[in-house]
């Protein structure tokens, strides 16, 4: 909050020196007397955490039909386009086979259930995200306050270094204007423009108003979302009582998405 206010005042000050100095200064002088503070803050009902994380209980998913509503909930909420051309596909959360999602863990003689079960793949919101390390503009960054790996679409120059750096294939690039490919637009959420990279945002916009991520909400309890750093949270309780796996854990990225198999 301190940082934001300073930035705000700084900007206001700088711009006030410009052509429009007089009315702006007057406006400020008049307003400052009554109420000296301008502020930026979190909404009262916002959900907060130190490191958001997710536990996906894959035992609840038997076929692609089980994942369909979850994927649709996410993609509708975030205006993710459905582009036929596989090269230009954009996806935030999608279905993978076990041996594709967990290449290092696939067994030579795999049990039948995991062999055929559908697995959800999405951005892992890693604790050590390689994508953020390589970004030349900090357009993708790990948010200090809650550990979400976010995209600043206003800042992204579209160099796609993050796509090369992500070991999970979680990022999509807008190879063309996505708007014609959005069937039904959610008017309360922006779309993207061509030339920027996008990916799952752990529903940062929903958490800010006290709602759980769309996928968790649509999953009938199969996806549990919570604070990984809070020992009393539901996710930690699940992790204590179940054996879980993470994608490509050996790379040291520390994914925040866990799978019960």
């Amino acid at each position: 909050m301190e940082d934001s206010r300073r930035r705000f005042l700084m900007l206001a000050g700088i711009s006030a020196v410009g052509l429009t100095a007089k009315p702006v200064l007057d406006a400020f002088a008049a307003e400052q007397k009554q109420h000296p503070t301008i502020g930026l803050k979190k909404a009262k009902d916002a959900l907060t955490a130190k490191q958001w994380g997710m536990v996906i209980d894959t035992r609840n998913f038997h076929s692609a039909d089980d994942l369909e509503p979850i994927i649709e909930a996410c993609h509708k909420t975030h205006n993710v386009p459905s582009i036929e051309n596989e090269h230009h596909e954009v996806k935030w959360i999608w279905e993978e086979h076990f041996h594709n999602a967990f290449p290092g863990l696939a067994q030579k003689y795999q049990d039948e259930r995991t062999e055929h079960a559908p697995f959800l793949a999405l951005c892992n919101h890693c604790e050590n995200p390689p994508c953020c390390r390589v970004c030349p503009t900090k357009a993708t960054f790990k948010r200090e306050s809650d550990g979400i790996v976010l995209m600043d679409f206003h800042r992204c120059i579209g160099c796609r270094f993050c796509m090369a750096a992500c070991p999970y294939g979680s990022r999509s690039f807008n190879f063309r204007d996505p708007r014609p490919f959005i069937e039904e637009t959610n008017k309360s959420f922006p779309t993207r423009m061509k030339g920027v990279v996008e990916k799952c945002n752990f529903c940062a916009e929903r958490l800010a108003v006290g709602k759980l991520p769309a996928c968790a909400e649509a999953s009938d309890g199969a996806i549990v979302f919570g604070d990984l750093y809070d020992p009393a949270s539901e996710v930690r309780e699940l992790l204590r009582t179940n054996y879980t796996i993470r994608r490509k854990q050996g790379l040291g990225t520390e994914p925040a998405v866990y799978y019960i198999v």
């Binding site: 909050m1 940082d3 934001s4 930035r7 307003e31 400052q32 009554q34 109420h35 000296p36 503070t37 301008i38 502020g39 930026l40 803050k41 979190k42 909404a43 916002a46 960054f141 948010r143 306050s145 809650d146 976010l150 600043d152 206003h154 940062a204 800010a208 108003v209």
Partner: peptide, 15 residues
């Protein structure tokens, strides 16, 4: 900047 990067979505104006 505030919404995207700092997770602060509420603006308090001078009044």
């Amino acid at each position: 900047h505030s919404v995207v990067r700092n997770a602060e979505r509420t603006f308090v104006n001078t009044s």
